[in-house]
């Protein structure tokens, strides 16, 4: 308390002049409004530019519905897989010492530094008609590229690090004393995980899942390479937005975009809540 008061006394001689303060706030907010608020508001304006009727009929088109279903399906497959991986990887890395651990951490982050287009390309090189396994899959009449499996694989690659990267620093910081205590008192490994570890990491885990899901539903570049853009078949929602926009079907494009923007807003709200939960936990 006394420290807070003394800094406040000093602060008065350290404050920026009023004109500096207000011009910096103006520049900062002007920049944020121009680059972040205006685009967000414009999505909504454009989506409703031809009225509510046009908006809802665009949303109920079969191709739009198919795109939404594909986006949901992709997220439903990729998010749980990468979540299970993230927890397992965090457990392996933070609870044991082994050779090559730092290399493993670096490799997990790898997909973040690969361009989305290259992330799609590698699956074309593997499974495309000219690819390594391409001919085998063609013979067995299995389509990976220009089909749903390719979209799932590319999304799996892109969203790979999200959960692991949230959990590793947290579990490292927590240490394993609590778990060791539970284990030495005779709890089983699974029981220890569910009753000791999981309650401690749940907010960070949800945070990772949230970011993973947002990216899985919104990924464009990688999916665009492997999808083939077949309407009603291999178009995810972002791809359907692209196709509609390029066909000058502005209402459809922005109606789809408004759904994705809504997803982004929900993500930001939940993210803010989770950050608040996490800092609260840290101070208690």
């Amino acid at each position: 308390m006394s420290a807070a008061i003394s800094t406040r006394v000093h602060q008065s001689t350290l404050d920026d002049a009023n004109w500096v303060r207000w011009s910096l706030i103006t520049i900062a907010l002007g920049f944020v409004i121009l680059f972040l608020c205006v685009p967000l508001v414009l999505v909504i304006i454009q989506a409703f530019s031809k009225g509510f009727g046009a908006y809802f009929s665009a949303l109920s088109q079969p191709d739009m519905q198919a795109a939404m279903r594909l986006t949901l399906l992709t997220a439903l497959i990729t998010v749980p897989l990468n979540t299970v991986f993230g927890v397992a990887a965090a457990w392996a890395i933070t609870r044991f010492e082994f050779r090559g651990k730092n290399l493993l951490i670096t490799l997990i982050d790898l997909p973040f530094s690969v361009s989305p287009v290259i992330s799609g390309l590698i699956f074309v090189l593997l499974f495309g008609a000219q690819g390594w396994f391409g001919s085998w899959f063609v013979e067995h009449d299995i389509k990976i590229i220009f089909a749903v499996p390719g979209i799932v694989l590319a999304t799996l690659f892109i969203t790979f690090p999200f959960v692991a990267r949230q959990l590793i620093p947290l579990m490292q910081e927590m240490g394993s004393e609590e778990e060791e205590a539970a284990l030495s008192l005779g709890a089983s490994g699974w029981k220890t995980f569910f009753l000791v570890t999981l309650p401690n990491i749940k907010w960070a885990l949800l945070y990772g899942v949230l970011l993973c899901n947002a990216r899985a539903m919104g990924e464009f570049g990688a999916v665009s390479v492997v999808s083939g853009h077949i309407r009603g078949m291999t178009n995810t929602l972002p791809l359907h937005v692209e196709v509609s926009y390029n066909e000058y079907d502005s209402v459809s494009a922005f109606a789809g975009a408004s759904i994705l923007a809504g997803l982004a807003i929900v993500t930001l709200i939940l993210k803010t809540l989770l950050e608040w939960k996490q800092t609260n936990r840290a101070t208690v």
Partner: peptide
């Protein structure tokens, strides 16, 4: 190794396996 902590083999092998399958093998094709 902390002798009491379970899951070393399954988690490390799953991590390496899944990492290879989803990231390393596809990336190495390039």
């Amino acid at each position: 190794q902390s002798r009491i902590m379970p899951g070393f083999r399954p988690t490390v092998s799953f991590t390496v396996f899944y990492l290879s399958l989803v990231v390393l093998i596809p990336l190495s094709t390039l």
